[in-house]
Every structure is written in structure tokens, then in C-alpha cells.
């Protein structure tokens, strides 16, 4: 197993140990072992149905695992609601279909979490929100509603919404798959900025250009298992498994 870029070795911020998940009788994730160091950027790829989305959704308990352990920032994910809430506040998630709240303005979308979960006063929450909106280059739309924005703009707002909670880890579930081609770049640029500022990121995506330029590790999953992972250079130039080779030949 290769070592990640070492700016900050130390205790992993996410640990998945011997994790298994079943949907009924169907074994959707098996034998998942993963240790994510702080500030590490991991890109996860694989064919559809391989379980990659399911795996990252287990990290913030949007899905439940039946066997094994998941530990996020020292807190173990169990049925305990308090632990789940603690983890969710520290882990931000960006969805394929944005999932902005259409009945709230952009600004209200961003301040919802800080006000109701972190109990931030409204003014402070709004200032933080405007700061992140500036960061994703969309501050002028603050008073508009999601229905008035394009897909690319909505996804950038979604990223800013997660950042307002000051998470330690950001999960991206195919963030550009639902976007028109001309909007993919604007979202990827925001994600690259984020990576360069040192955010720990797990990104499920097909955008291999992003993986090559930003990732510390690229991971290939198939049929619920982690087949192969490596530094991007080694992963793309020297895949070890047949399945990885097949997948890469199909998408590159």
C-alpha cells in the first residue's frame, strides 16, 4: 500500500475497518478497509453499481453498515444518534443532484445549518455565508432562489452550503455527472481551489483530469470491493488488475 503525500502524517481522520454492507441478501460492500489522513485527497472511480457512492454515504451515515467499524475524527459511527449528529456536522457532502432547498433563498440555504445546528447568531452566519459565496464566485446571486440558477451555479452553491458548516472532511458524490459539459469546469475549478487550501476530500467521479491534477490517491472499486488504489501517476500508467485495465480503457 502506497503512502499519501505527507504534509501531515498522523492519526487518520477517517478509518473504515473490515466494513461490510448488505441490502437484504445482496452483498453490496465487502471487506472495505480505508484510512484517510488529514488533508488527503482521494478520488474513487469504478463502474456503476460498484458501491462507491454507497461507501461514502456510509461515512456520514446516510447508509448503515452491518459489519465492521467506521470512525470519523475519533467518533465511531453506531446506532447512537449523538455520534451520528457529531459526525454529520464535521462531514460535508455534495450531491449529484445538488439538493438545494427550493423554497429558501441562496443565502438562507447556506445559513440554515449554522443557525440550527451550530447555533450561530444570524448576522455571523450571513457573513460567513457571503464569504463562502464569494469564494465560489456566486455572491451576487445571494438573494435569488435555486430555481433561478443554472446547474453549475446550483452545484457551486451546494459546495458553499457544505463549507459553511466548517467541515473537516468533504464528500463529493459524482458532483459533475448531472451538469451540462460547459458547466463542469466551473465546478471542478472550485473543487481544485478547495483541495489546494488543504481540505480533506473524498470524490466519487469520472473526471480523470481532476484525479490526475489533484488527487493524492486514486481508488478503483468494483462489485463492492476496493480493487486497487495507488498514486495517480502509478494508477493510470501502471494498473495492476485486469478489471482496472478494462475500466480505464473504457473511460480514457
Amino acid at each position: 500500500m502506497s503512502e499519501p503525500k505527507t504534509e501531515n502524517a498522523g492519526k487518520p481522520i477517517i478509518e473504515i475497518v473490515d466494513m461490510h454492507k448488505w441490502y437484504g441478501e445482496f452483498h453490496v460492500l465487502s471487506d472495505i478497509n480505508l484510512a484517510v489522513k488529514p488533508q488527503e485527497r482521494i478520488v474513487i472511480c469504478g463502474p456503476s453499481g460498484s458501491g462507491k457512492s454507497t461507501m461514502i454515504r456510509c461515512i456520514n451515515r446516510l447508509e448503515e453498515h452491518q459489519k465492521g467499524r467506521i470512525i470519523v475524527d475519533g467518533v465511531e459511527l453506531t446506532k447512537d444518534i449523538k455520534n451520528i449528529e457529531k459526525v454529520r456536522a464535521e462531514v460535508g457532502m455534495v450531491f449529484q443532484h445538488f439538493n438545494l432547498f427550493p423554497h429558501l433563498t441562496i443565502l438562507d440555504n447556506l445559513t440554515l445549518g449554522p443557525i440550527w445546528v451550530r447555533k450561530t447568531p444570524k448576522k455571523e452566519a450571513e457573513e460567513t455565508a457571503m464569504m463562502y459565496l464569494e469564494k465560489v464566485h456566486i455572491a451576487e446571486q445571494a438573494k435569488k432562489f435555486p430555481g433561478q440558477l443554472s446547474g453549475g451555479q446550483q452545484q457551486r452553491v451546494a459546495i458553499a452550503r457544505s463549507l459553511c458548516m466548517s467541515p473537516k472532511v468533504m464528500l463529493f458524490d459524482e458532483p459533475t455527472s448531472a451538469l451540462d459539459p460547459e458547466m463542469i469546469k466551473e465546478v471542478l475549478d472550485v473543487m481544485i481551489d478547495l483541495a489546494q487550501e488543504g481540505m480533506t476530500m473524498l470524490v466519487v467521479t469520472h473526471e480523470m483530469g481532476f484525479a490526475k491534477s489533484v488527487a493524492d490517491r486514486v481508488m478503483f472499486m468494483d462489485e463492492g470491493q476496493i480493487v486497487e488504489q495507488n498514486k495517480p501517476h502509478d494508477f493510470f500508467d501502471n494498473p495492476q488488475h485486469e478489471r482496472t485495465k478494462l475500466f480505464l480503457s473504457q473511460i480514457l
Binding site: 446516510l62 460535508g92 457532502m93 439538493n99 427550493p102 423554497h103 440554515l112 440550527w116 445546528v117
Partner: peptide, 27 residues
């Protein structure tokens, strides 16, 4: 109310009661 929004609300850390009150019921 699409399930994705419920997930997004939960992912931010809102408790089920708040999700119901702030996201589901208004819509």
C-alpha cells in the same frame, strides 16, 4: 418533497425534527 433534500438536510446535521419543520413541511 424529494428524498435528496431530506438527505442534504441530514448531511448538514439537522435533526429529524428540524428537517421536518424547516425543509419538508414548508414544501
Amino acid at each position: 418533497v424529494s428524498h435528496g433534500q431530506v438527505e442534504a438536510a441530514m448531511a448538514i446535521g439537522l435533526r429529524p425534527g428540524s428537517v421536518l419543520r424547516l425543509v419538508i413541511l414548508p414544501q
